[in-house]
Design a protein around this nucleic acid. Structure first.
Length: 469
DNA sequence: TCTCAATTTCG
DNA sequence: GAAATTGAG
């Protein structure tokens, strides 16, 4: 008997419950990946992320080949491709990893209908999150969670399954047209980013090992420092499932750093929980009082200054240029950049969400949407608005004290003395000339006045809440 | 996972 | 007088 394993963002062979279950129940297994135009050209299409995906698939195919199989690739909707392949191979069942996003679920329903009509069985297995079935976690009152801390406490108590080792051999039917992984050119993708990470399970494992041997032990102290290499940079690998979150958790050593990092893994599970229970969050504010009530600023010039990293605030500009150069941004920088767009500039969080999705190689619907709603103060885990208006000047002093991060990504500021880095517009003219950084020509003047922008933001939210009441 | 300013503590 | 702590928003 033959089974199909439908890969999506679970591009690994280690701790893959669906692959494991298929191998246990069937003599032959056909691993399949479908390039779906709805994703490649959809609202959240992304050249950098698709490039990373291609690398993940090439690596997965190499791992499968070492075990006697090939990745079967189709440029077709899974509703069609899976039925066709089942017909050719005589497969009686399709195995896949359960997903939570609205798109994955509606596509899943189409696939389900097609498989049912064709008389093919299906098996959905866990593997997307640390805890199996995060959707099932309930508060005492019986509802889904909307606050992180209590979710975290419950999450710690969820029983965990043992990680499953990678299979040694994957028997696959011979003579199958396995297709080909398209190249970046064939998909019409623009040039690769300068600093992008390389996709694939083997690269992911190497990075995880490096992180676990060193930086994770300083993670509690260094995680908010974009100038240090203190974070795991595993987000893209987790997004594409090159790493199993459960297996990663099981591999963590003891200590405060690992514990803090595990808590970050829980944020990921939390946002998957939220995405499952509140699919409308994909487009609407979780907090009903802010739906359609905030008077966002429609200013394309300001938005462009933000995306291009020329707001005049060094930390924001470094963050936005890091995104463009590397397809990745440090988490603390994401919060500062997100706070700046939505609060100080007063621009709709959805525009920021979309921009991030376009460039982030770790761009993930559940996490990105959850974090944007969080920093815009319109989502779950609510806090008073004023608590999430971050001051980019103070954040620079605190989290990039020597200016290493800012100087790396904003070369105009490289020769600006340390004491003027946070507020370069206050540099005396002689120092500006000396540093080769004349404000207004070499580096932009600040696009807003921080104190006034903060007050305007608080007023904007207060007016929105009042309008709703 | 804040910010700002007032207040207290310490050398 | 600077640094740490506290409290309000």
């Amino acid at each position: 008997m033959t089974a199909l394993v439908w890969f999506r963002h679970d591009l690994r062979i280690s701790d893959h419950p669906a692959l494991d279950a298929a191998l246990r129940a069937h003599d032959r297994v056909v691993p399949v990946f479908c390039f779906d135009d709805r994703l490649l050209a959809g609202r959240h299409a992304s050249g950098p992320r698709t490039r990373f995906l291609i690398e993940c698939l090439e690596d997965l195919d190499a791992e499968l080949r070492e075990r006697g199989a090939r990745l079967v690739v189709r440029r077709e909707r899974p509703e069609r491709a899976l039925i066709e392949l089942a017909g050719i191979t005589g497969a009686t069942e399709v195995y896949y990893t359960r997903d939570v996003t609205p798109f994955a679920r509606s596509r899943g329903r189409s696939v389900h209908a097609a498989l049912e009509a064709a008389g093919i069985a299906e098996q959905a297995l866990p593997g997307l999150t640390v805890a199996d079935d995060v959707a099932a976690v309930r508060t005492r009152a019986g509802g889904p969670y909307a606050v992180f801390s209590p979710f975290y406490r419950s999450w710690l108590d969820i029983p965990r399954r043992a990680p499953i080792p990678a299979p040694a051999h994957i028997p696959s039917p011979p003579g199958l047209d396995h297709g080909r992984i398209p190249t970046a050119d064939e998909l019409g993708l623009s040039a690769a980013l300068e600093g992008a990470q390389r996709g694939g399970e083997r690269e992911a494992v190497a990075r995880l090992d490096r992180f676990l041997r060193g930086p994770i032990h300083q993670y509690a102290e260094e995680r908010d420092r974009p100038d240090l290499d203190g974070t795991s940079k595993l987000s893209a690998y987790l997004h594409f499932g090159c790493l199993s979150p459960r297996e990663v958790e099981a591999a963590l050593p003891r200590g405060e750093g690992p514990q803090q990092w595990r808590r970050q893994l829980c944020w990921r599970d939390f946002y998957h929980h939220v995405q499952f229970h509140y699919p409308e969050n994909a487009r609407l504010e979780y907090q009903v009082r802010y739906r359609g009530t905030i008077a966002w600023t429609e200013d394309d010039a300001l938005f462009a200054a933000w995306t291009e990293g020329r707001t005049g605030f060094p930390l924001v500009d470094a963050a936005m240029r890091q995104l463009r150069r590397d397809g990745w941004m440090h988490n603390r920088a994401r919060l500062v950049a997100g706070s700046f767009l939505t609060k100080q500039l007063g621009i709709d969080w959805r525009r920021g969400e979309q921009w991030f999705m376009r460039l982030l190689i770790d761009g993930d619907q559940a996490n990105n949407n959850g974090n944007w709603q969080w920093i815009a103060s319109v989502g779950v885990d609510p806090q008073p608005v004023f608590r999430r208006v971050y001051n980019p000047t103070l954040h620079l002093e605190r989290y990039d004290p020597e200016g290493v991060y800012v100087r790396e990504y904003v070369p105009e500021l490289r020769r600006v003395p340390r004491r003027h880095l946070a507020e370069p517009w206050k540099m005396p003219e002689s120092v500006q000339r000396e540093a080769g950084c004349v404000i207004g020509s070499d580096y932009p003047r600040p696009v807003v006045d921080l104190a006034a922008a903060r007050e305007a933001a608080l007023a904007r939210y207060a007016a929105a809440a009042a309008a709703d009441a």
